[in-house]
Deep mutational scan, measured.
Amino acid sequence: TEEVEKIVRELQKRGVSQEEIQRILKRNGIDPRDVEHVVRRLR
């Protein structure tokens, strides 16, 4: 989703690792598959 993408991009800008990003998003109830998808697209 748009929202997830924004969050991921923001965290990446701050130098947060992929694993940490995924952990944060999972904690916020976001589907890990969505996270994977977004992270892969932004690489």
Results as ranks from 00 to 15, higher is better:
23 R>C: 14
17 S>M: 04
13 K>H: 08
21 I>M: 10
30 I>S: 02
43 R>D: 15
31 D>G: 03
7 I>Y: 06
25 L>Q: 02
15 G>H: 07
2 E>R: 11
3 E>I: 11
14 R>T: 07
6 K>W: 08
7 I>V: 08
17 S>I: 02
41 R>I: 04
19 E>G: 08
8 V>Y: 11
3 E>N: 11
9 R>M: 07
30 I>D: 01
14 R>N: 10
34 D>C: 15
2 E>Y: 09
17 S>C: 11
9 R>N: 03
39 V>E: 09
28 N>P: 03
26 K>R: 10
7 I>L: 11
17 S>T: 10
10 E>F: 07
20 E>N: 06
22 Q>F: 14
20 E>K: 06
17 S>F: 02
15 G>A: 03
21 I>T: 01
20 E>V: 07
33 R>F: 05
9 R>T: 05
34 D>A: 09
41 R>N: 11
5 E>H: 05
25 L>D: 01
29 G>D: 03
32 P>S: 06
29 G>T: 03
27 R>K: 12
16 V>W: 10
14 R>M: 10
20 E>I: 05
24 I>T: 04
15 G>V: 01
24 I>W: 06
35 V>N: 01
25 L>I: 05
37 H>N: 13
33 R>I: 09
6 K>E: 07
5 E>R: 05
13 K>V: 07
13 K>M: 11
32 P>L: 05
10 E>K: 07
32 P>K: 03
30 I>T: 04
26 K>C: 15
10 E>M: 08
36 E>F: 02
31 D>N: 08
8 V>D: 00
27 R>Y: 09
32 P>D: 07
11 L>G: 00
38 V>S: 01
10 E>C: 14
8 V>S: 00
14 R>V: 06
15 G>F: 03
9 R>S: 05
24 I>F: 05
35 V>I: 14
12 Q>M: 15
33 R>E: 09
4 V>W: 08
19 E>Q: 10
3 E>P: 06
43 R>N: 14
3 E>F: 13
2 E>G: 10
24 I>E: 09
1 T>H: 11
30 I>G: 01
37 H>K: 13
30 I>Y: 14
4 V>G: 01
4 V>F: 05
41 R>S: 06
39 V>T: 11
15 G>Y: 02
1 T>D: 09
40 R>A: 08
7 I>C: 14
22 Q>P: 02
32 P>F: 06
16 V>I: 11
29 G>H: 04
2 E>C: 15
6 K>D: 06
21 I>G: 00
39 V>L: 15
28 N>Y: 13
42 L>G: 13
12 Q>S: 09
5 E>W: 13
8 V>W: 07
42 L>C: 15
13 K>N: 10
28 N>R: 13
26 K>N: 09
31 D>K: 04
37 H>Q: 13
22 Q>E: 13
17 S>E: 04
7 I>Q: 07
21 I>Y: 03
31 D>M: 03
25 L>N: 01
7 I>S: 03
37 H>M: 13
14 R>E: 07
16 V>L: 12
31 D>H: 05
8 V>M: 06
8 V>L: 08
21 I>P: 00
16 V>E: 03
36 E>P: 02
6 K>T: 06
11 L>P: 00
28 N>D: 08
43 R>P: 14
34 D>P: 00
28 N>G: 07
37 H>T: 14
42 L>W: 00
29 G>N: 05
25 L>A: 09
5 E>T: 06
29 G>C: 11
18 Q>A: 12
10 E>W: 06
38 V>Q: 02
27 R>G: 13
9 R>K: 07
35 V>S: 02
15 G>I: 01
3 E>R: 09
40 R>P: 13
12 Q>G: 04
22 Q>L: 14
24 I>S: 02
4 V>H: 02
3 E>L: 12
6 K>P: 02
10 E>I: 08
18 Q>T: 14
17 S>H: 06
16 V>Y: 12
1 T>G: 08
15 G>S: 03
31 D>P: 05
33 R>H: 10
21 I>N: 00
39 V>M: 15
19 E>A: 11
42 L>P: 12
20 E>S: 05
2 E>H: 10
22 Q>S: 12
39 V>G: 03
23 R>P: 02
32 P>W: 08
19 E>P: 04
12 Q>D: 05
21 I>F: 09
38 V>H: 03
26 K>L: 15
9 R>Q: 05
27 R>T: 11
43 R>Q: 15
38 V>F: 02
41 R>E: 12
13 K>E: 10
27 R>F: 09
3 E>M: 10
12 Q>T: 11
35 V>C: 13
30 I>R: 02
10 E>A: 10
14 R>I: 09
25 L>C: 13
19 E>K: 10
23 R>Q: 11
13 K>I: 08
28 N>H: 12
10 E>D: 09
3 E>G: 08
30 I>P: 01
8 V>R: 01
6 K>A: 10
6 K>L: 07
40 R>E: 14
40 R>L: 00
16 V>P: 00
11 L>I: 02
36 E>M: 05
38 V>M: 06
43 R>G: 15
13 K>C: 14
32 P>Y: 05
31 D>E: 05
23 R>L: 11
14 R>S: 08
23 R>T: 09
36 E>D: 08
41 R>Y: 03
41 R>K: 11
24 I>M: 07
19 E>S: 10
33 R>P: 02
37 H>I: 14
6 K>M: 08
34 D>S: 07
24 I>P: 00
28 N>A: 13
20 E>Q: 07
20 E>T: 05
28 N>Q: 13
24 I>Q: 08
19 E>F: 06
6 K>Y: 07
4 V>D: 01
40 R>D: 15
19 E>D: 10
22 Q>T: 13
17 S>W: 02
34 D>E: 12
34 D>L: 15
1 T>M: 13
21 I>E: 00
35 V>R: 00
17 S>G: 07
42 L>D: 12
43 R>C: 15
15 G>N: 06
41 R>F: 04
27 R>H: 10
40 R>K: 11
26 K>H: 12
18 Q>L: 15
25 L>R: 02
21 I>D: 00
11 L>E: 00
9 R>Y: 04
20 E>P: 00
4 V>Y: 06
12 Q>E: 05
13 K>Q: 10
38 V>D: 02
27 R>W: 05
6 K>S: 08
22 Q>N: 09
38 V>Y: 01
6 K>G: 05
15 G>R: 04
13 K>R: 10
16 V>G: 01
31 D>F: 02
18 Q>D: 14
38 V>T: 03
43 R>I: 14
25 L>S: 03
26 K>I: 15
27 R>M: 13
28 N>E: 12
26 K>Q: 13
20 E>R: 04
2 E>T: 09
22 Q>Y: 14
27 R>Q: 12
15 G>C: 14
31 D>V: 02
43 R>V: 14
4 V>Q: 02
40 R>Q: 11
37 H>V: 12
2 E>S: 10
32 P>M: 06
2 E>D: 11
33 R>C: 15
31 D>L: 03
15 G>P: 01
36 E>V: 04
20 E>H: 05
20 E>W: 06
35 V>A: 05
19 E>H: 09
31 D>Q: 03
29 G>F: 03
4 V>T: 04
34 D>G: 04
9 R>W: 04
34 D>F: 12
23 R>M: 08
28 N>V: 12
38 V>K: 01
30 I>M: 09
30 I>N: 02
43 R>K: 11
21 I>H: 00
7 I>G: 00
34 D>T: 14
30 I>L: 07
6 K>I: 07
35 V>Q: 01
23 R>V: 11
36 E>H: 03
21 I>K: 00
11 L>A: 04
13 K>F: 05
7 I>N: 02
19 E>N: 06
29 G>M: 03
38 V>P: 01
1 T>L: 14
31 D>C: 10
43 R>Y: 11
7 I>P: 00
1 T>K: 09
28 N>W: 13
16 V>C: 15
27 R>V: 12
3 E>T: 10
9 R>V: 06
26 K>T: 13
5 E>L: 09
27 R>I: 11
22 Q>C: 15
18 Q>C: 15
1 T>R: 10
10 E>Q: 09
3 E>Q: 11
20 E>G: 06
39 V>H: 05
34 D>N: 05
5 E>P: 01
13 K>S: 11
27 R>E: 14
19 E>L: 08
38 V>W: 03
5 E>N: 04
12 Q>I: 15
5 E>A: 07
18 Q>R: 11
18 Q>S: 12
41 R>M: 08
41 R>C: 15
32 P>H: 03
43 R>S: 14
18 Q>G: 08
18 Q>Y: 15
41 R>V: 02
11 L>S: 01
37 H>G: 10
28 N>F: 12
8 V>K: 01
41 R>L: 07
12 Q>N: 08
34 D>V: 15
41 R>H: 12
26 K>A: 13
4 V>A: 05
23 R>H: 11
43 R>M: 15
26 K>D: 11
42 L>E: 13
43 R>A: 15
23 R>E: 14
10 E>H: 07
4 V>L: 14
32 P>N: 03
35 V>K: 01
30 I>H: 08
12 Q>K: 05
27 R>C: 15
43 R>H: 15
4 V>I: 13
42 L>R: 12
35 V>Y: 12
15 G>D: 03
40 R>T: 09
